[in-house]
Amino acid sequence: MTQYWLMKSEPDECSIDDALAAPHATVPWTGVRSYQARNFMRDAMKVGDGVLFYHSSCPEPGIVGIARVASGTRPDPTQFDPKSPYHDAASKVEDPRWLLLDVQALRKTRLLGLPELRATPALADMLVLRRGNRLSITPVDAAHWRLIVEKMLA
């Protein structure tokens, strides 16, 4: 059964355009440093699941594209690279703490920004709209997915 996710990326690191330009439009989702987000990747996300590609930490945050989970998880090499901002000196190669999976961008859409998301009553209980939510990966209800995709492609 397909599940749906919202995955945040800072466009300076990997934008929807970067993902679409990558070989096979597939990018490794590196730098996840939240145990809850890591556990979603490890325990719940499956190849083929739908992804709402979300730009964060930018002037106009919001959903900018549709993607899919393109691989299972594997160790995130940035945790072992001392030059990486995602280096984790406590993580060991034989027992990695952080994982990644590949995401394949399927299409860029119009920006569905936070103000528009918040102004849609049917989306009020989306995790990304909750105060204090900072997770980079959150599950998306199937009804929310359908409504958002319909809005983006309208």
Rank of each mutant, 00 (worst) to 15 (best):
M1R: 11
T2L: 15
T2M: 11
Q3C: 10
Q3N: 14
W5Q: 05
M7N: 03
E10C: 02
E10Q: 07
P11I: 00
D12C: 10
E13L: 15
E13D: 14
E13W: 12
C14D: 07
C14M: 15
S15E: 04
S15Y: 08
I16Q: 04
D17W: 13
D17F: 15
D18Y: 11
A19W: 12
L20F: 13
L20W: 13
P23C: 01
A25Q: 14
T26K: 07
V27T: 14
V27L: 09
P28T: 10
P28L: 08
R33S: 12
Q36S: 11
R38K: 14
N39I: 10
D43P: 11
M45D: 08
K46I: 06
K46Y: 09
D49V: 08
V51I: 14
L52Q: 01
F53L: 11
Y54D: 00
S56F: 04
S56D: 01
E60C: 07
P61G: 00
P61D: 03
I63H: 00
I63D: 00
I66P: 05
I66C: 06
R68Y: 10
S71V: 08
S71W: 06
R74D: 09
R74S: 12
R74L: 09
R74W: 13
D76N: 05
P77F: 04
Q79G: 02
Q79Y: 03
D81P: 04
K83D: 15
S84W: 07
S84N: 07
D88H: 08
K92P: 03
E94I: 05
D95A: 13
D95T: 13
W98F: 10
L99P: 09
L100H: 14
L100D: 11
L101D: 10
V103H: 10
Q104G: 06
L106Q: 14
L106W: 12
L112S: 04
L112P: 03
L117A: 00
R118I: 04
R118E: 08
T120D: 03
T120Y: 01
P121G: 06
P121F: 02
A122M: 06
L123E: 01
A124R: 11
R130K: 15
R130W: 07
G132E: 03
R134E: 06
R134L: 08
S136R: 10
T138R: 09
V140Y: 05
A143K: 12
A143G: 12
W145Y: 09
R146D: 13
I148G: 01
I148A: 02
L153E: 15
